[in-house]
Nucleic acid binder design. Sequence first.
DNA 1: TGTACATCAGTGAACGCGCGTTCACTGATGTAC
DNA 2: TGTACATCAGTGAACGCGCGTTCACTGATGTAC
Lengths: 199, 199
Amino acid sequence: MTGSEAPARRRNPRGQGEQLRAEIVGAAARLLNELGDDQALSMRAVARAVGVAATSVYPHFADRDALVLAVMAACHQQLLAAAERGEAGHRDPARRLRAHLLAQIDWALDHPGLYKVLHESGVNRRAAQPYKQALLDRTTDAVRACLGDPDAADAATIAFDLRTAVNGMLSVRVNEATRDWPPPRQQLDRFIAGLLRAG
Amino acid sequence: MTGSEAPARRRNPRGQGEQLRAEIVGAAARLLNELGDDQALSMRAVARAVGVAATSVYPHFADRDALVLAVMAACHQQLLAAAERGEAGHRDPARRLRAHLLAQIDWALDHPGLYKVLHESGVNRRAAQPYKQALLDRTTDAVRACLGDPDAADAATIAFDLRTAVNGMLSVRVNEATRDWPPPRQQLDRFIAGLLRAG
DNA sequence: TGTACATCAGTGAACGCGCGTTCACTGATGTAC
DNA sequence: TGTACATCAGTGAACGCGCGTTCACTGATGTAC
Protein backbone atom coordinates (compact mmCIF):
# COMPACT_ATOMS: atom_id res chain seq x y z
CA MET A 1 0.00 0.00 0.00
CA THR A 2 2.43 2.63 1.24
CA GLY A 3 5.92 1.37 0.58
CA SER A 4 6.53 2.55 4.09
CA GLU A 5 8.72 -0.23 5.40
CA ALA A 6 10.81 0.75 8.36
CA PRO A 7 14.38 -0.12 7.35
CA ALA A 8 16.56 -0.14 10.43
CA ARG A 9 15.28 -1.37 13.73
CA ARG A 10 17.23 -2.52 16.69
CA ARG A 11 15.89 -4.95 19.16
CA ASN A 12 14.40 -3.41 22.27
CA PRO A 13 16.50 -3.63 25.44
CA ARG A 14 15.62 -6.22 27.94
CA GLY A 15 12.43 -5.51 29.89
CA GLN A 16 11.13 -3.12 27.25
CA GLY A 17 9.53 -5.67 24.96
CA GLU A 18 6.20 -3.92 25.43
CA GLN A 19 7.44 -1.03 23.32
CA LEU A 20 6.98 -3.15 20.23
CA ARG A 21 3.32 -3.47 21.11
CA ALA A 22 2.90 0.30 20.93
CA GLU A 23 4.77 0.43 17.63
CA ILE A 24 2.50 -2.26 16.22
CA VAL A 25 -0.64 -0.42 17.28
CA GLY A 26 0.70 2.77 15.73
CA ALA A 27 1.54 1.11 12.45
CA ALA A 28 -1.78 -0.71 12.35
CA ALA A 29 -3.62 2.55 12.96
CA ARG A 30 -1.76 4.21 10.12
CA LEU A 31 -2.48 1.36 7.75
CA LEU A 32 -6.13 1.13 8.81
CA ASN A 33 -6.51 4.83 8.20
CA GLU A 34 -5.26 4.31 4.66
CA LEU A 35 -7.30 1.18 4.05
CA GLY A 36 -10.53 2.20 5.75
CA ASP A 37 -11.38 -1.46 6.22
CA ASP A 38 -10.34 -3.87 8.91
CA GLN A 39 -10.58 -6.88 6.65
CA ALA A 40 -7.99 -5.36 4.35
CA LEU A 41 -5.42 -5.09 7.12
CA SER A 42 -2.87 -7.87 7.05
CA MET A 43 -0.66 -8.92 9.91
CA ARG A 44 2.22 -9.25 7.50
CA ALA A 45 1.80 -5.68 6.28
CA VAL A 46 1.80 -4.41 9.85
CA ALA A 47 4.96 -6.35 10.61
CA ARG A 48 6.60 -5.01 7.46
CA ALA A 49 5.64 -1.46 8.42
CA VAL A 50 7.21 -1.89 11.83
CA GLY A 51 10.27 -3.59 10.39
CA VAL A 52 9.84 -6.84 12.22
CA ALA A 53 9.19 -10.48 11.34
CA ALA A 54 5.54 -11.36 10.83
CA THR A 55 5.67 -13.75 13.73
CA SER A 56 6.70 -11.02 16.13
CA VAL A 57 3.18 -9.63 16.22
CA TYR A 58 1.71 -12.74 17.83
CA PRO A 59 3.24 -12.46 21.28
CA HIS A 60 1.36 -9.15 21.56
CA PHE A 61 -1.89 -9.86 19.74
CA ALA A 62 -3.57 -13.24 19.53
CA ASP A 63 -4.99 -12.57 16.10
CA ARG A 64 -5.91 -9.83 13.70
CA ASP A 65 -9.17 -8.96 15.41
CA ALA A 66 -7.35 -8.38 18.69
CA LEU A 67 -5.03 -5.93 16.98
CA VAL A 68 -7.87 -4.09 15.27
CA LEU A 69 -9.77 -3.83 18.54
CA ALA A 70 -6.73 -2.35 20.24
CA VAL A 71 -6.55 0.32 17.56
CA MET A 72 -10.26 1.04 17.93
CA ALA A 73 -9.95 1.43 21.68
CA ALA A 74 -7.14 3.93 21.18
CA CYS A 75 -9.27 5.86 18.70
CA HIS A 76 -12.16 6.08 21.11
CA GLN A 77 -9.84 7.47 23.72
CA GLN A 78 -8.74 10.13 21.28
CA LEU A 79 -12.32 10.98 20.34
CA LEU A 80 -13.37 11.32 23.94
CA ALA A 81 -10.39 13.48 24.75
CA ALA A 82 -11.03 15.69 21.73
CA ALA A 83 -14.66 16.16 22.74
CA GLU A 84 -13.62 17.13 26.23
CA ARG A 85 -11.02 19.58 25.00
CA GLY A 86 -13.65 21.09 22.72
CA GLU A 87 -16.16 21.56 25.52
CA ALA A 88 -13.57 22.95 27.87
CA GLY A 89 -13.09 25.99 25.64
CA HIS A 90 -16.55 27.40 26.31
CA ARG A 91 -18.98 28.29 29.07
CA ASP A 92 -22.25 28.73 27.23
CA PRO A 93 -23.97 25.33 27.01
CA ALA A 94 -24.95 25.80 23.38
CA ARG A 95 -21.37 26.63 22.46
CA ARG A 96 -20.15 23.70 24.50
CA LEU A 97 -22.45 21.32 22.66
CA ARG A 98 -21.36 22.70 19.33
CA ALA A 99 -17.67 22.43 20.24
CA HIS A 100 -18.23 18.91 21.51
CA LEU A 101 -19.67 17.79 18.20
CA LEU A 102 -17.25 19.81 16.13
CA ALA A 103 -14.25 18.26 17.83
CA GLN A 104 -15.45 14.82 16.84
CA ILE A 105 -16.22 15.95 13.31
CA ASP A 106 -12.72 17.33 12.99
CA TRP A 107 -11.16 14.18 14.32
CA ALA A 108 -13.16 12.08 11.88
CA LEU A 109 -12.29 14.22 8.88
CA ASP A 110 -8.64 14.06 9.92
CA HIS A 111 -8.79 10.26 10.18
CA PRO A 112 -11.34 9.20 7.60
CA GLY A 113 -10.14 5.63 7.30
CA LEU A 114 -10.15 5.11 11.04
CA TYR A 115 -13.61 6.61 11.24
CA LYS A 116 -14.75 4.04 8.70
CA VAL A 117 -13.18 1.22 10.66
CA LEU A 118 -14.81 2.50 13.83
CA HIS A 119 -18.31 2.73 12.38
CA GLU A 120 -18.50 0.48 9.39
CA SER A 121 -16.11 -2.38 9.82
CA GLY A 122 -17.03 -6.00 10.30
CA VAL A 123 -15.48 -6.08 13.75
CA ASN A 124 -18.60 -4.28 14.96
CA ARG A 125 -20.55 -7.44 14.23
CA ARG A 126 -18.10 -9.61 16.09
CA ALA A 127 -17.40 -7.47 19.16
CA ALA A 128 -19.57 -4.77 20.71
CA GLN A 129 -17.94 -1.44 21.50
CA PRO A 130 -18.84 -0.16 24.96
CA TYR A 131 -16.94 3.09 24.24
CA LYS A 132 -19.60 4.27 21.87
CA GLN A 133 -22.18 4.42 24.59
CA ALA A 134 -19.83 6.56 26.65
CA LEU A 135 -19.54 9.04 23.80
CA LEU A 136 -23.29 9.16 23.34
CA ASP A 137 -23.76 9.71 27.07
CA ARG A 138 -21.43 12.68 26.89
CA THR A 139 -23.50 14.17 24.12
CA THR A 140 -26.64 13.62 26.15
CA ASP A 141 -25.09 15.54 29.03
CA ALA A 142 -24.21 18.42 26.74
CA VAL A 143 -27.74 18.49 25.32
CA ARG A 144 -29.28 18.39 28.76
CA ALA A 145 -27.24 21.41 29.76
CA CYS A 146 -28.64 23.26 26.77
CA LEU A 147 -32.21 22.44 27.63
CA GLY A 148 -31.84 23.88 31.10
CA ASP A 149 -34.03 21.21 32.62
CA PRO A 150 -31.67 18.65 34.19
CA ASP A 151 -34.38 15.99 34.08
CA ALA A 152 -35.43 16.58 30.49
CA ALA A 153 -36.33 13.18 29.14
CA ASP A 154 -35.93 14.40 25.57
CA ALA A 155 -32.22 14.97 26.06
CA ALA A 156 -31.38 11.38 25.19
CA THR A 157 -33.57 11.45 22.09
CA ILE A 158 -32.18 14.74 20.90
CA ALA A 159 -28.63 13.59 21.52
CA PHE A 160 -29.30 10.42 19.57
CA ASP A 161 -30.79 12.38 16.69
CA LEU A 162 -27.88 14.79 16.64
CA ARG A 163 -25.31 12.03 16.66
CA THR A 164 -27.23 10.20 13.96
CA ALA A 165 -27.25 13.27 11.75
CA VAL A 166 -23.57 13.90 12.41
CA ASN A 167 -22.91 10.29 11.52
CA GLY A 168 -24.59 10.89 8.20
CA MET A 169 -22.52 14.01 7.59
CA LEU A 170 -19.32 12.13 8.18
CA SER A 171 -20.34 8.98 6.37
CA VAL A 172 -21.01 10.81 3.17
CA ARG A 173 -17.86 12.90 3.33
CA VAL A 174 -15.61 10.04 4.31
CA ASN A 175 -16.94 7.60 1.76
CA GLU A 176 -16.93 9.89 -1.21
CA ALA A 177 -14.01 12.07 -0.37
CA THR A 178 -13.40 13.12 -3.97
CA ARG A 179 -16.72 14.94 -4.39
CA ASP A 180 -16.79 18.33 -2.80
CA TRP A 181 -19.43 18.65 -0.15
CA PRO A 182 -20.97 21.69 1.52
CA PRO A 183 -19.02 22.94 4.54
CA PRO A 184 -19.60 20.65 7.51
CA ARG A 185 -19.72 23.45 10.09
CA GLN A 186 -22.74 25.10 8.54
CA GLN A 187 -24.53 21.81 8.15
CA LEU A 188 -23.83 21.05 11.78
CA ASP A 189 -25.34 24.40 12.78
CA ARG A 190 -28.48 23.65 10.79
CA PHE A 191 -28.75 20.26 12.47
CA ILE A 192 -28.36 21.78 15.91
CA ALA A 193 -30.88 24.51 15.16
CA GLY A 194 -33.40 22.07 13.73
CA LEU A 195 -33.07 19.22 16.19
CA LEU A 196 -32.31 20.91 19.48
CA ARG A 197 -35.79 21.41 20.86
CA ALA A 198 -38.36 19.25 22.56
CA GLY A 199 -39.62 16.45 20.28
CA MET B 1 -20.12 -18.28 3.32
CA THR B 2 -23.52 -19.68 2.65
CA GLY B 3 -22.94 -23.19 1.32
CA SER B 4 -25.51 -22.16 -1.24
CA GLU B 5 -24.07 -23.80 -4.32
CA ALA B 6 -26.49 -24.36 -7.15
CA PRO B 7 -26.25 -28.10 -7.83
CA ALA B 8 -27.78 -28.86 -11.22
CA ARG B 9 -27.50 -26.41 -14.03
CA ARG B 10 -27.94 -27.06 -17.68
CA ARG B 11 -26.26 -25.04 -20.32
CA ASN B 12 -28.38 -22.27 -21.79
CA PRO B 13 -29.77 -22.92 -25.26
CA ARG B 14 -28.06 -21.27 -28.14
CA GLY B 15 -28.58 -17.52 -28.41
CA GLN B 16 -29.52 -17.24 -24.75
CA GLY B 17 -26.03 -16.94 -23.33
CA GLU B 18 -27.00 -13.59 -21.85
CA GLN B 19 -29.20 -15.35 -19.31
CA LEU B 20 -26.07 -16.37 -17.42
CA ARG B 21 -25.21 -12.72 -17.06
CA ALA B 22 -28.44 -12.09 -15.19
CA GLU B 23 -27.88 -15.13 -12.98
CA ILE B 24 -24.40 -13.88 -12.15
CA VAL B 25 -25.67 -10.43 -11.21
CA GLY B 26 -28.34 -12.01 -9.04
CA ALA B 27 -25.92 -14.28 -7.23
CA ALA B 28 -23.41 -11.47 -6.76
CA ALA B 29 -26.14 -9.26 -5.29
CA ARG B 30 -27.12 -12.00 -2.86
CA LEU B 31 -23.53 -12.56 -1.79
CA LEU B 32 -22.80 -8.85 -1.51
CA ASN B 33 -25.85 -8.43 0.67
CA GLU B 34 -24.45 -11.07 3.01
CA LEU B 35 -20.91 -9.75 2.94
CA GLY B 36 -21.65 -6.03 3.04
CA ASP B 37 -18.30 -5.36 1.41
CA ASP B 38 -17.29 -5.41 -2.22
CA GLN B 39 -13.72 -6.39 -1.47
CA ALA B 40 -14.92 -9.56 0.18
CA LEU B 41 -16.76 -10.73 -2.91
CA SER B 42 -14.82 -13.30 -4.89
CA MET B 43 -15.43 -14.21 -8.49
CA ARG B 44 -14.99 -17.85 -7.58
CA ALA B 45 -17.71 -17.65 -4.92
CA VAL B 46 -20.09 -16.07 -7.41
CA ALA B 47 -19.35 -18.79 -9.94
CA ARG B 48 -19.91 -21.47 -7.30
CA ALA B 49 -23.22 -19.89 -6.29
CA VAL B 50 -24.38 -19.92 -9.89
CA GLY B 51 -23.10 -23.45 -10.45
CA VAL B 52 -20.67 -22.60 -13.19
CA ALA B 53 -16.91 -22.67 -13.73
CA ALA B 54 -15.04 -19.66 -12.39
CA THR B 55 -13.91 -18.81 -15.89
CA SER B 56 -17.47 -18.49 -17.14
CA VAL B 57 -17.90 -15.16 -15.44
CA TYR B 58 -15.27 -13.43 -17.55
CA PRO B 59 -17.09 -13.37 -20.87
CA HIS B 60 -19.73 -11.27 -19.09
CA PHE B 61 -17.66 -9.11 -16.75
CA ALA B 62 -14.12 -7.96 -17.42
CA ASP B 63 -13.21 -8.04 -13.74
CA ARG B 64 -14.62 -7.94 -10.25
CA ASP B 65 -15.20 -4.21 -10.23
CA ALA B 66 -17.31 -4.46 -13.37
CA LEU B 67 -19.51 -7.06 -11.71
CA VAL B 68 -19.89 -5.04 -8.53
CA LEU B 69 -20.78 -1.93 -10.52
CA ALA B 70 -23.45 -3.86 -12.39
CA VAL B 71 -24.99 -4.91 -9.08
CA MET B 72 -24.85 -1.34 -7.81
CA ALA B 73 -26.58 -0.04 -10.92
CA ALA B 74 -29.36 -2.58 -10.42
CA CYS B 75 -29.74 -1.50 -6.79
CA HIS B 76 -30.05 2.13 -7.72
CA GLN B 77 -32.80 1.23 -10.16
CA GLN B 78 -34.63 -0.55 -7.37
CA LEU B 79 -34.20 2.38 -5.00
CA LEU B 80 -35.46 4.85 -7.54
CA ALA B 81 -38.45 2.66 -8.36
CA ALA B 82 -39.26 2.19 -4.67
CA ALA B 83 -39.14 5.94 -4.08
CA GLU B 84 -41.49 6.54 -7.00
CA ARG B 85 -43.92 3.89 -5.84
CA GLY B 86 -43.87 5.44 -2.39
CA GLU B 87 -44.63 8.91 -3.67
CA ALA B 88 -47.34 7.65 -5.98
CA GLY B 89 -49.46 6.57 -3.03
CA HIS B 90 -50.11 10.09 -1.81
CA ARG B 91 -51.29 13.53 -2.95
CA ASP B 92 -50.25 15.77 -0.09
CA PRO B 93 -46.66 16.95 -0.71
CA ALA B 94 -45.61 16.38 2.88
CA ARG B 95 -46.91 12.83 2.76
CA ARG B 96 -45.26 12.30 -0.57
CA LEU B 97 -41.90 13.42 0.79
CA ARG B 98 -42.26 11.17 3.79
CA ALA B 99 -43.23 8.19 1.65
CA HIS B 100 -40.35 8.91 -0.69
CA LEU B 101 -37.81 8.74 2.12
CA LEU B 102 -39.54 5.89 3.88
CA ALA B 103 -39.44 3.72 0.78
CA GLN B 104 -35.69 4.11 0.60
CA ILE B 105 -35.31 3.45 4.30
CA ASP B 106 -37.32 0.25 3.95
CA TRP B 107 -35.29 -0.86 0.98
CA ALA B 108 -32.05 -0.26 2.86
CA LEU B 109 -33.18 -2.10 5.97
CA ASP B 110 -34.29 -4.98 3.78
CA HIS B 111 -30.91 -5.07 2.03
CA PRO B 112 -28.43 -3.93 4.65
CA GLY B 113 -25.38 -5.45 3.00
CA LEU B 114 -26.19 -3.95 -0.36
CA TYR B 115 -26.77 -0.60 1.29
CA LYS B 116 -23.29 -0.84 2.76
CA VAL B 117 -21.80 -1.69 -0.61
CA LEU B 118 -23.65 1.22 -2.17
CA HIS B 119 -22.51 3.79 0.36
CA GLU B 120 -19.38 2.54 2.01
CA SER B 121 -17.52 0.29 -0.36
CA GLY B 122 -14.20 1.01 -1.96
CA VAL B 123 -15.72 1.03 -5.43
CA ASN B 124 -16.98 4.51 -4.62
CA ARG B 125 -13.40 5.70 -4.65
CA ARG B 126 -12.66 4.06 -7.98
CA ALA B 127 -15.84 4.88 -9.91
CA ALA B 128 -18.30 7.72 -9.38
CA GLN B 129 -21.98 6.85 -9.21
CA PRO B 130 -24.12 9.22 -11.27
CA TYR B 131 -27.27 7.49 -9.98
CA LYS B 132 -26.87 9.02 -6.57
CA GLN B 133 -27.32 12.51 -7.92
CA ALA B 134 -30.55 11.40 -9.58
CA LEU B 135 -31.87 10.19 -6.24
CA LEU B 136 -30.90 13.41 -4.52
CA ASP B 137 -32.57 15.42 -7.28
CA ARG B 138 -35.78 13.48 -6.69
CA THR B 139 -35.65 14.35 -3.03
CA THR B 140 -35.08 17.99 -3.88
CA ASP B 141 -38.21 17.93 -6.06
CA ALA B 142 -40.24 16.45 -3.23
CA VAL B 143 -38.93 19.05 -0.80
CA ARG B 144 -39.68 21.87 -3.23
CA ALA B 145 -43.25 20.68 -3.51
CA CYS B 146 -43.55 20.87 0.26
CA LEU B 147 -42.24 24.41 0.42
CA GLY B 148 -44.87 25.63 -1.99
CA ASP B 149 -42.47 28.00 -3.69
CA PRO B 150 -41.27 26.30 -6.87
CA ASP B 151 -38.15 28.46 -6.95
CA ALA B 152 -37.15 27.99 -3.33
CA ALA B 153 -33.37 27.96 -3.28
CA ASP B 154 -33.34 26.25 0.10
CA ALA B 155 -34.93 23.13 -1.34
CA ALA B 156 -31.58 21.69 -2.38
CA THR B 157 -30.03 22.41 1.01
CA ILE B 158 -32.95 20.94 2.91
CA ALA B 159 -33.00 17.87 0.69
CA PHE B 160 -29.29 17.39 1.25
CA ASP B 161 -29.70 17.74 5.01
CA LEU B 162 -32.58 15.28 5.04
CA ARG B 163 -30.71 12.71 3.00
CA THR B 164 -27.64 13.20 5.16
CA ALA B 165 -29.64 12.56 8.32
CA VAL B 166 -31.36 9.55 6.75
CA ASN B 167 -27.94 8.27 5.79
CA GLY B 168 -26.92 8.47 9.40
CA MET B 169 -30.07 6.61 10.51
CA LEU B 170 -29.34 3.81 8.13
CA SER B 171 -25.60 3.69 8.69
CA VAL B 172 -25.99 3.14 12.38
CA ARG B 173 -28.73 0.51 12.02
CA VAL B 174 -27.02 -1.34 9.23
CA ASN B 175 -23.59 -1.41 10.84
CA GLU B 176 -24.66 -2.45 14.29
CA ALA B 177 -27.65 -4.54 13.48
CA THR B 178 -27.54 -6.51 16.72
CA ARG B 179 -28.20 -3.53 18.99
CA ASP B 180 -31.83 -2.52 19.04
CA TRP B 181 -32.36 0.99 17.86
CA PRO B 182 -35.31 3.35 18.25
CA PRO B 183 -37.98 2.96 15.55
CA PRO B 184 -36.77 4.53 12.30
CA ARG B 185 -40.17 5.93 11.34
CA GLN B 186 -40.38 8.19 14.34
CA GLN B 187 -36.83 9.36 13.95
CA LEU B 188 -37.56 10.17 10.32
CA ASP B 189 -40.57 12.23 11.38
CA ARG B 190 -38.44 14.18 13.82
CA PHE B 191 -35.89 14.83 11.11
CA ILE B 192 -38.55 16.04 8.71
CA ALA B 193 -40.13 18.25 11.35
CA GLY B 194 -36.82 19.72 12.40
CA LEU B 195 -35.16 20.19 9.05
CA LEU B 196 -38.03 21.03 6.70
CA ARG B 197 -38.09 24.79 6.94
CA ALA B 198 -36.12 27.68 5.53
CA GLY B 199 -32.48 27.62 6.65
C1' DT C 1 -31.80 -34.97 -47.53
C1' DG C 2 -27.05 -34.98 -46.03
C1' DT C 3 -22.87 -33.07 -44.45
C1' DA C 4 -19.12 -29.84 -43.48
C1' DC C 5 -18.41 -26.04 -40.81
C1' DA C 6 -18.81 -21.91 -37.87
C1' DT C 7 -20.48 -20.49 -33.69
C1' DC C 8 -21.90 -20.59 -29.13
C1' DA C 9 -21.81 -21.69 -24.10
C1' DG C 10 -19.22 -22.99 -21.51
C1' DT C 11 -14.91 -26.12 -19.00
C1' DG C 12 -10.41 -27.65 -16.48
C1' DA C 13 -5.80 -27.09 -15.49
C1' DA C 14 -2.57 -24.03 -14.29
C1' DC C 15 0.08 -19.56 -13.07
C1' DG C 16 1.81 -16.91 -9.22
C1' DC C 17 0.42 -14.39 -5.18
C1' DG C 18 -0.20 -12.92 -0.35
C1' DC C 19 -2.26 -14.34 3.51
C1' DG C 20 -2.85 -16.18 8.87
C1' DT C 21 -0.69 -18.92 11.72
C1' DT C 22 2.51 -22.56 13.84
C1' DC C 23 6.89 -24.37 14.96
C1' DA C 24 11.35 -24.94 16.46
C1' DC C 25 15.02 -21.89 16.80
C1' DT C 26 18.79 -18.04 18.06
C1' DG C 27 21.51 -14.89 20.23
C1' DA C 28 22.00 -11.22 23.52
C1' DT C 29 21.57 -10.06 28.46
C1' DG C 30 20.81 -10.10 33.08
C1' DT C 31 21.15 -12.99 37.49
C1' DA C 32 22.30 -16.62 41.01
C1' DC C 33 25.92 -18.79 42.98
C1' DT D 1 35.63 -12.22 39.76
C1' DG D 2 33.95 -15.87 36.98
C1' DT D 3 30.60 -18.82 35.00
C1' DA D 4 26.40 -21.51 34.25
C1' DC D 5 21.83 -20.71 33.30
C1' DA D 6 17.21 -18.73 32.66
C1' DT D 7 14.87 -15.36 30.31
C1' DC D 8 13.74 -12.19 26.91
C1' DA D 9 13.03 -10.27 22.21
C1' DG D 10 12.64 -11.72 18.28
C1' DT D 11 13.60 -14.84 13.68
C1' DG D 12 13.04 -17.99 9.40
C1' DA D 13 11.06 -21.67 7.20
C1' DA D 14 7.07 -23.83 6.35
C1' DC D 15 1.96 -25.35 6.32
C1' DG D 16 -2.20 -25.07 3.54
C1' DC D 17 -5.51 -21.92 1.64
C1' DG D 18 -8.36 -19.21 -1.61
C1' DC D 19 -7.90 -15.87 -4.77
C1' DG D 20 -7.95 -13.31 -9.85
C1' DT D 21 -6.98 -14.32 -14.16
C1' DT D 22 -5.18 -16.69 -18.51
C1' DC D 23 -5.01 -20.35 -21.70
C1' DA D 24 -6.12 -23.82 -24.73
C1' DC D 25 -9.90 -26.74 -25.08
C1' DT D 26 -14.73 -29.30 -25.83
C1' DG D 27 -18.98 -30.58 -27.28
C1' DA D 28 -23.54 -29.41 -28.70
C1' DT D 29 -26.25 -26.87 -32.22
C1' DG D 30 -27.68 -24.28 -35.87
C1' DT D 31 -26.66 -23.00 -40.89
C1' DA D 32 -24.88 -22.84 -45.73
C1' DC D 33 -24.51 -25.43 -49.57
